[in-house]
Design a protein around this nucleic acid. Structure first.
Lengths: 208, 208
DNA sequence: AATTCCAGAGAACAGTTGTTAACTGCATGG
DNA sequence: CCATGCAGTTAACAACTGTTCTCTGGAATT
C-alpha cells in the first residue's frame, strides 16, 4: 500500500506545501478574498504560473487549507469530549487543550475563525462541512454517556453544536490574547471554564 | 439644538450614505480587505477622488459601517433580555426578534459576522468594542433580575457574553437559511430556542 | 454683490493583478 | 538509451489599483 514517492512527486508536494505555508502566513493580516496568487508565489520564490500546477484558484487553495487546519483535528475533538472522569476536571482539561492548540497552530485557528463567515463561498462551505462533522462526532460521543440515556437525538445534536461553537469562541478568544499578559490569559481561561460549566449544568438539568 | 442643514451639507451626507450603501452591497460577496475604493465609487457613480472627501480609507468606511450596523441596536438588545415574564416566552420572543432583524438587515448582519474576525484591524476593534458594550448592557439587565441576586459581577458578565455570542451565532445561522425553505428556517428556530433554553437552565442551577 | 470655500471631476502616475502561450530541463517509464 | 511527461520559467496582455495634483461650479459667507 505504501507507495514510495519518486523525486519528482516529493518535490511537487514540497512546493505545494510551501504555497500553503506562505498563504497561511500572509493571511494573518488579511482575508482570503484579498489574497493574490502572485503574492503567494512571490513569497515562496516561484513563478506565478507555477501556482496553477497545484491549485485551480486561490479559493481552491483555501479549501485545501481548511482540510489542513481541521482535517487532523477529529481525533482530538473526540477524546476531549469523551472520558468518564468527573465533569469539572474534564472542562479544565478541555479548555487547556484548546489553549495549547491555539498556541501550537495560531495561524490555522485564525484562518478558520476568519474564513468561516468570510467572502469566499467554497471555503465557507468546506468549513461548514467540517464543523458539521465535528457536531456529529461530538453527538456520538455524548450519546455514549449514561447521563444522556433519555435524550432525543435532536437534543443531543443541539447540545453538540453548542459545544462546538463554544470551542470556537474560546479558541478565538485565546487567539486575541496570544500577545497579552499571562494574567489576561488566565482570566480568559477562567471565563471559558465557567461558560462550559454553565452549559454542563444546563445539560444535567435538561430533563427536569 | 436642531440645526437645519444647508443644501451643501445634505448633499454631502447623501453621497456619504450612498458610499456606505454601495459598500455594504458589494460586501455581500467579498471581504472588506478586498474591497476597492474605486469599486465603491464606481458603484455610486462618482469620481474615485470624491471618496477622500468622506473617508480616509476603506478601513475608515468599515468602522463607519460598524457604527451603522450595531450603533442603533443597543435599545433592542436591552429590551430583548429584560422583562419579567416567564423565561420560556422570553426565549421564543428573543429568537423571533433575531430572525426579524436578520430579515430586515441581512447585509448588516453578514458584515458584522464576516468582519468580526476579518482582516482589517480597526474594524475588528470597533466590533469588539460594540460587542463589549452589549455584554455590559446585558449584564446590567441581568443584574436587575431577582434570579441573579446572589451572583457575582464576574459571573454575570460571563453569562452576558455567553448570551451575546449565542445571539450572534443564531443570527448567522438565520442568515444562512435566508434562501432556504420555511421548514429549514423553522428547524433552525427550534434549535436556537433549545440552546437558549439550555443556557437558561444552567443559569437557574448555577448556585446549586 | 463680491468673495471665500469645498464637494466632486479629470487626468495622470507607477504598481499591481490574473491568465495566456510557448519554452526548458530533468525525472520517469518503455 | 531514448522518448515522453510534466513542474516550473519567461514574456507579454489588458485591466485594474490607490494616490497625487489641478481645476471647476455653485453654495455659503461677508
Amino acid at each position: 500500500m505504501s507507495h514510495i514517492l519518486g523525486v519528482r512527486q516529493t518535490q511537487k508536494l514540497k512546493t505545494r506545501q510551501a504555497l500553503l505555508d506562505a498563504a497561511l502566513r500572509l493571511l494573518e493580516e488579511q482575508s482570503l478574498s484579498s489574497l493574490g496568487l502572485r503574492e503567494v508565489t512571490r513569497a515562496v520564490g516561484v513563478a506565478p504560473t507555477a501556482f496553477y500546477r497545484h491549485f485551480r484558484s486561490i479559493a481552491d487553495l483555501g479549501v485545501a487549507l481548511v482540510e489542513e487546519a481541521l482535517g487532523s483535528l477529529h481525533p482530538m475533538i473526540r477524546t476531549t469530549v469523551s472520558g468518564a472522569d468527573d465533569s469539572s476536571r474534564r472542562i479544565t482539561r478541555a479548555v487547556e487543550l484548546i489553549a495549547r492548540h491555539v498556541d501550537a497552530y495560531p495561524a490555522h485557528v485564525r484562518f478558520i475563525a476568519r474564513e468561516r463567515h468570510g467572502g469566499v463561498q467554497p471555503v465557507r462551505e468546506a468549513i461548514r462541512e467540517q464543523l458539521a462533522r465535528f457536531g456529529q462526532e461530538v453527538r456520538d460521543e455524548l450519546a455514549k454517556d449514561t447521563e444522556a440515556a433519555d435524550w432525543g437525538d435532536d437534543d443531543l445534536l443541539m447540545l453538540a453544536h453548542l459545544y462546538v461553537d463554544q470551542m470556537l469562541i474560546t479558541a478565538s478568544l485565546f487567539l486575541e490574547t496570544l500577545e497579552s499578559s499571562p494574567e489576561e490569559r488566565e482570566r480568559v481561561t477562567r471565563v471559558a471554564e465557567r461558560q462550559m460549566r454553565l452549559i454542563s449544568i444546563g445539560r444535567q438539568h435538561w430533563l427536569d
